[in-house]
Design a protein around this nucleic acid. Sequence first.
DNA 1: GATGCTTACGATACCCGTAAAGATA
DNA 2: TATCTTTACGGGTATCGTAAGCATC
Lengths: 308, 308
Amino acid sequence: MNFQQLRIIRETVRSNFNLTEVANKLFTSQSGVSKHIKDLEDELGIELFERKGKRLLGMTAPGRELAKIVDRMLLDSQNIKKLAEQYSQQDQGNLTVATTHTQARYVLPPIVAKFRQQYPKVKLHLHQGSPQEIAQMLLAGEADIGIATETIGNVEGLLTFPFHSWHHAVIVPAGHALEKQVAKLHKSGKQLTLAAIAAYPLITYHSGFTGRASIEKAFQEAGLAPEIVLSALDADVIKSYVELGMGIGIVASMAFNAERDLNLHRLDCSHLFPANLTRIAVREGQLQRHFADHFIALCAPQNVAKSD
Amino acid sequence: MNFQQLRIIRETVRSNFNLTEVANKLFTSQSGVSKHIKDLEDELGIELFERKGKRLLGMTAPGRELAKIVDRMLLDSQNIKKLAEQYSQQDQGNLTVATTHTQARYVLPPIVAKFRQQYPKVKLHLHQGSPQEIAQMLLAGEADIGIATETIGNVEGLLTFPFHSWHHAVIVPAGHALEKQVAKLHKSGKQLTLAAIAAYPLITYHSGFTGRASIEKAFQEAGLAPEIVLSALDADVIKSYVELGMGIGIVASMAFNAERDLNLHRLDCSHLFPANLTRIAVREGQLQRHFADHFIALCAPQNVAKSD
DNA sequence: GATGCTTACGATACCCGTAAAGATA
DNA sequence: TATCTTTACGGGTATCGTAAGCATC
């Protein structure tokens, strides 16, 4: 048994049992991959993979159990390397943060700026993706820290803790009818309603992103079925189309900047949609460079711009 | 990094940083050991061992942390082998039980007999040692199951659960004065006292064995300092000297067999000494063959002979 | 002087990649 | 036929053990 064999086992699972792909990912030859698997199976005296003729289709029962252990071992092997870097190059190295557009664009900048000041020699990698992709990157060891709002909370193998809580807000073109409506309501001591919002065509996030689920839930519970004319990955795109007059937008409230978004106005609706909790996630059992812990420490409340 | 290097790191710690010894233990050459350590240190870019000139004296801080991870990895590598055996040879293999004389001689026989019936192809290895040695064997992976009474409960890295609870008993030569004394006490509804026992020279276990600590504690709390004229590792030895009239014995009550020990009588003293809890221990994180789990299951209360 | 670690060097075994053959869709 | 896996084989590399050199006690 050697590490190359273990890497091959892990990569075979990840690559859906296509050994050619495994060879490419690990920068080695197909034949070597094949032989390594055979050698390991011979050494252990058990079949690890289900085969139909020469094709691999999946794992056997012992194979699945072995894969779990292999994952742990390779994680530990990574931990050894991280440990060594920790001591040999105190404040140097790489930190990969996987996050969504919203966080990267509107929440993380001040934190990243502070971090760079403290660790000028650390190379920061900011990866953008969906919450699912972020979880995958963490589990595969491709990212050190993940930050996302949905789903990330209950992924097996991840350790998460709260980062910050925020609300959605409605954005409208300056002078929009809804804006006047809100002004009137305020005078009589009332607030904006979901029904009033649902009367207009909406532009908001793709499902799975930035609290889209909580928006849908709020409307559904109110018995409303608003027309969502456009969905996008990020608030910048949404704002562009709101400016064009295609509809009113629902975005994370911190995505609105009064100084820059001169053609838009923000309407508070923290009473309409439930608060969203953005979480920080790391892979369970993975050793973190000390500056990674420091990055997480920087994500304390006082460094997060108030958005409501 | 390869497994041989990891094995060498682990063995170096275990062998007190004597590389010659490491080489012998791992059946390889000194020079190879030396080179492997150097290679690993070079690869990681850190010193793992404290050196004085050419001698290794101990570990550096990163070395100590690395050793922990290495232990985990090698444990997992063992787990992979166990897993493979599990599937390739269902009911074959080896089971090493480390225990003390008392358990091996008076408690385990019926359990071992049942086990052999169920798994005739499993080779059982019964290792005897002190509780400390038992813990060491478990932690080093040399034994699968440990059974002992003292200290084993709070050893880091071991998982323990209760096996059975038992009391000490006093044994005396047939017709001994203490025996008559007890008979009298019984008639007036009274019981044997510690003071009555302490009046005679005592023969019991070595300290660290079979509840010796709880015996001492009981006397001490009663303000008594009995004379222990002989201490031994096991009840058989103790009984021999009690028969010779050297003193009265205090042994685990299950060590007395009325049918065999015709020259001795047992006096109940479950009210004088606290109960002793014998525990079963396994190494934390170590995969167990399924017949090992079965062995533990056999240690259920109904299979343990009542001793009080 | 005895023990213990390191370095040098030659033999061996292992790992890798190319190429050809066989199997599957 | 195109894709994929296995087997065979030659070249290269890494590992191992012997032996010599050199510290430490």
